[in-house]
Design a protein around this nucleic acid. Structure first.
Lengths: 248, 248
DNA sequence: CAGAAGCCTTGACCCAGATCAATCTCATGA
DNA sequence: TCATGAGATTGATCTGGGTCAAGGCTTCTG
């Protein structure tokens, strides 16, 4: 648990099959020592706002445990979720002033933070870190662009299926499982949060979830426990034979 | 013109008021010398595909002149534009294998390219470059996320206004003008391309452009020459008092 | 100059998803 | 135990934007 916090982001070290793990002793040893000195922890309760849009943001950091959402809001209240932060995800922009989004804790949340100034200085003396952050940011950019396709061109049913596929895949890789057998996981989002993610209303989300359940694409125990009997089928429903990279 | 090619991306050097310029002698002198040795040029005609989704991508580079689009396509043909590449924009992902999108030249296009391997080696020995790329990628990520709000939550009219605002602003800053007086520029996109950008059909784009014209928000000479008499009014129509950062 | 090919515009109609509203479920706690 | 309230579901109805279709405007080409 403590170990996780040493990571500055999702994992991707070449031949290592593990991605999205919060820690990998082999390739992060150097970062670990460097970051040790300037790090500290912050905890948030479910529902708490971690960062307000427009905040100064004097730190960067990564999620240790829990889930947070990244949202943008218009003056009239319309909101769009633009990212989901899961354990090992990085928050903040070295070299930039403020935040453009609200970051809200969806569950209880622990973050490992680094004061921004020292972190930036460290980036200059440790090229490895800048490159690592670049890789992570490129991944996020790919994910955001993939999501643009979902938002712009998919139907409500496809949107729901896409979101479920992404969460299911991420959950599976996080637990070092493949996507062959049935997948079981807990939905970390309310219907309303899903709607904000998908550019829909919560009623439409509810209807489409019910429809997917009725059609046997998913099974529900309660409102949050989801079973995907056939992941390939879900991908078809998502209109997506390729990868659902969001959160990747 | 040749000078522009030395740049590896949009400009942002602190107190310098110039952004989005392709070159800035002051702060890029070091990059210039380093990159000189491994760069070469490629030209494309309007309509040509620069990179196919899935290509190996053995180079990275930046746009010198002309415009290209970044698009994703579903198997059934639905397409979503996920980015617009204007002069000084960077293309490619150091450290990554292939491209996830199609890159298509919208106008005649000149790119300044660097073979990927040497470029990556150079990144390791020249931390400045990785950091610069990180800044650019963070900007792109912000832009992509801002666009997610447009795609997910805005009406057709607001979408059109948002796109026009973004192009107008980028055009103004590129020519070192403010956004106070009337803005005049050429639309670099067909109605169909706009539709692909906005997640709409070309008919809806046409209707809403006509409506904005009828309501005096924009003026049109021909189909492509646009005049924005009041930029603030346009931003209101976009549902957006803050910045339209896409392409920023 | 005529014809053709690309774009663009406009109209008529339709439907997926929004909106409005009622009800249900279930966890919490007095 | 029951009241409370936050989420979720479901139904009825409406509407913004999609779909289909018919021209219109330019720019090439022969």
């Amino acid at each position: 648990m403590l170990q996780e916090a040493f990571s500055i982001g999702s994992h991707d070290c070449g031949d290592c099959p593990i991605r999205h793990r919060a820690v990998c002793a082999r390739c992060e040893a150097d970062e670990l020592e460097l970051l040790e000195e300037i790090k500290y922890y912050r905890s948030f309760e479910a529902g708490q706002t971690v960062i307000w849009s427009g905040d100064k943001m004097d730190f960067v950091g990564s999620v240790v445990s829990g889930i947070a959402t990244l949202t943008q809001t218009m003056e009239d209240g319309r909101t769009q979720m633009v990212g989901l932060l899961l354990p090992s995800d990085f928050v903040g922009r070295p070299g930039r002033q403020g935040s453009a989004y609200d970051v809200v804790a969806t569950t209880d949340l622990v973050m490992c933070c680094f004061r921004k100034k020292p972190f930036e200085q460290m980036m200059e003396t440790t090229p490895h870190i800048a490159q690592r952050l670049l890789q992570m940011t490129l991944d996020e950019l790919d994910a955001a662009r993939e999501w643009m396709l979902v938002l712009g061109r998919k139907t409500a049913r496809e949107k729901i299926a896409s979101l479920l596929a992404i969460i299911a895949r991420r959950d599976a890789t996080l637990h070092l499982r493949g996507t062959d057998g049935p997948l079981v996981f807990d939905l970390p989002l309310t219907r309303e949060a899903m709607a904000d993610y998908l550019g829909l209303t919560l009623e439409t989300v509810s209807r489409q979830v019910s429809a997917l359940k009725r059609d046997g694409v998913i099974e529900l125990q309660g409102k949050r426990h989801v079973t995907i009997p056939d992941f390939g089928r879900l991908l078809e429903e998502a209109g997506d034979d390729s990868d659902g990279g969001m959160l990747a």
